[in-house]
């Protein structure tokens, strides 16, 4: 963690974690990260990537994020940082953006990649099928988390390096590969910040 940022609020060991703010529920992630003892800030430009120790890709519309990431030159710089080991956590659309391959995407829809998995967009259905359910997440202590699934994707298949952290109804809904974490659901909407705390720990250890 050799970030050049000098924020007065920053004490040694407090990681700076960006939230990709092209579109989506950025605010909820900023709040959750702050509650999990990180310095959180929105990130929209390639040069802002140099200032962060970790990044959250929020929920939102993945086709919009993909489009804006391309237009504003975020795709390659972020891919490079992820390859170099930047810890990243994606929820819902963020999970889609972290998949090496996607199904049911828009034609030519680009992702950042980082997890050797195939993710199916809107796999759990449209909004009328969106749901809440308890989810046991491996590595998160203290009982299941409240899983909020909104037009949620699931993981269709994973490569050998990928650890499956949670399943719902037989489908993989949380994974980790190295420094990259992804969930189909939205812990940022629940007020329970244990998954964010897990990610902050990953950033500290990176």
């Amino acid at each position: 963690m050799s970030s050049p940022v000098s924020s007065p609020a920053r004490t040694p060991g407090t990681p700076v974690i960006g939230v990709l703010a092209l579109q989506g529920d950025v605010r909820e992630h900023l709040v959750a990260l702050a509650e999990a003892d990180a310095l959180a800030r929105p990130v929209r430009r390639p040069e802002e990537l140099a200032e962060i120790d970790g990044l959250v890709i929020p929920g939102g519309e993945s086709t919009t994020m993909s489009k804006l990431a391309g237009v504003f030159g975020m795709l390659e710089p972020l891919r490079e940082r992820i390859r170099a080991g930047l810890p990243v956590y994606g929820t819902c659309a963020g999970m889609i953006m972290l998949a090496d391959k996607i199904l049911d995407g828009r034609e030519d829809q680009q992702t950042f990649g980082g997890v050797d998995m195939i993710v199916r967009r809107n796999a759990f259905g449209r909004q009328n099928e969106s749901f809440e359910a308890s989810v046991e997440v491996s590595g998160v202590e203290g009982g299941p988390v409240e899983g909020v699934f909104i037009r949620a994707p699931w993981v269709e298949s994973v490569g050998g390096e990928v650890e499956v952290l949670a399943r719902h109804d037989g489908h993989t809904v949380a994974v980790r590969q190295g420094n990259v974490l992804a969930t189909s659901f939205h812990p940022e909407l629940t007020g329970d910040h244990r998954v964010h705390a897990l990610f902050v720990e990953m950033v500290r250890g990176a």
Binding site: A21, Q23, G24, D25, G59, G60, F131, V148, F149, I150
Partner: peptide, 11 residues
């Protein structure tokens, strides 16, 4: 789930 859907449209 209903309000959360709108949160995803922000921005």
């Amino acid at each position: 789930v209903k309000r959360g859907m709108a949160e995803q449209l922000k921005g």
